[in-house]
Design a protein around this nucleic acid. Structure first.
Lengths: 219, 219
DNA sequence: TATTAAAATTAGGCTAATCTAATTTATGAT
DNA sequence: ATCATAAATTAGATTAGCCTAATTTTAATA
């Protein structure tokens, strides 16, 4: 149906729109895809022809409804495969991204729906990212960055904004796991370093960078 | 590592070598891949450069040891994914070929080995085709075509030579399943039509074409 | 052995996706 | 409002994998 490459463009545009608002810039897309700007301009013209993106010369671009549907479908595939790799095959959460990046391109509605059922209709992937349902509806989880909490506030650790293996391994090493209740015990005024209290009395000190990478659901 | 296309060439050459002996012809490969002969010549030159095939102009070609290893790896992937699709996701045996054709190209030794373990190290795929082990060793199942059996002989139905969905659905409809004991009750002299006895006293009449598509393991 | 039919290769072209270098358009600071 | 810089686009080329048409090579048979 759509090429592997087109699908990667669609997914990348979708994610950029999510973060930066409606309109995406050529250079931003080139950067996340690891290609040079003229390649993006080229590809966008082709994709505009297929009504996957709305494109106006030198004015940025955004997904059409059709493009958005394809993108959400790929994200659904990706996240369900990640659940499979972790829950069924025993991969760690820092190992699954690249494999899911390949598996996501196998376009079969039947396959992904059967996979979904087999996994028990999970709501989120191993990193806490929400999984769109079969109709492409993506549950909006309302969570905030740990860095926005005040001293004394607490919540449940439900996701990350940094998906790098390095960060995920750091969390493992520090004993911070998805689903944990986390309370902010102290915030250092000088550099915003946070002292967190995890289950029982265990305390961990994390940098501001870490606090900015953790998503917390406040009750 | 290798492109999707290269991998399909390698797999196709491997299968042709299995059936027709060592050396493969350009036209035969073009036919099974659904491309035209000049494309094959083109591709073979590139692949010869990578030492995947041994190629002599106008004299046919065959896989190198390296090419054979890649081909067997892909076949291992393919057949393990087929087991997954049938055993875990509940697909029928006539539905899995095309999906496995895509899944097989995800090259990760770690993934396929974890999948193998998860499936319980199956020896054969849902059509009875043997699965190469992690070292690329493919167990040689000694089986014969049903059509070679004499009246009165019997064996276990262990595989098919025709993998088409149409044939597989026909077998389902006729109640002939992998693992069944089948006895040849009669062979019509005129057109080699076979009367088979399945479990209990159930009898089925099949054409010579069918008898030529069933693999039987004789004890 | 000579001839012909079939198979394979060469020649020349196309498309998708990429690149670099050159040019144009947009933005932001004085 | 103008000018400098940053961003985007155009121009022109490359590579993998495919095509058709033309040519060459091999194999089969009179």
């Amino acid at each position: 149906m759509h090429s592997y490459t087109e699908e990667n463009y669609l997914k990348a545009i979708y994610k950029l729109q999510e973060i930066n608002g409606e309109v995406v810039a050529t250079s931003a897309l080139a950067q996340v895809l690891g290609v040079h700007a003229p390649s993006v301009t080229d590809m966008l013209k082709r994709m505009a022809g297929k009504k996957l993106v709305a494109y106006q010369k030198s004015k940025g671009f955004k997904l059409t409804e059709k493009g958005k549907q394809v993108a959400v479908g790929i994200i659904r595939n990706h996240r369900l495969w990640e659940v499979f790799l972790v829950d069924k095959l025993g991969f760690r959460w820092d190992q699954v991204h690249d494999l899911a990046e390949e598996l996501e391109h196998i376009q079969s509605v039947d396959l992904v729906n059967k996979l979904d059922a087999y996994l028990g209709y999970p709501k989120a992937d191993p990193h806490g990212d929400p999984i769109p349902d079969a109709n492409g509806v993506l549950p909006k989880l309302k969570s905030v960055l740990l860095a926005t909490l005040q001293k004394g506030e607490q919540g449940t650790f439900t996701g990350v904004t940094d998906h790098s293996a390095a960060f995920l391994l750091y969390l493992d090493k520090s004993g911070i796991s998805l689903g944990d209740t986390i309370k902010v015990k102290a915030i250092e005024a000088f550099d915003q370093t946070c002292t967190l209290q995890l289950k029982a009395k265990r305390e961990v000190v994390v940098s501001q960078k870490v606090a900015n990478s953790l998503l917390i659901s406040v009750a």
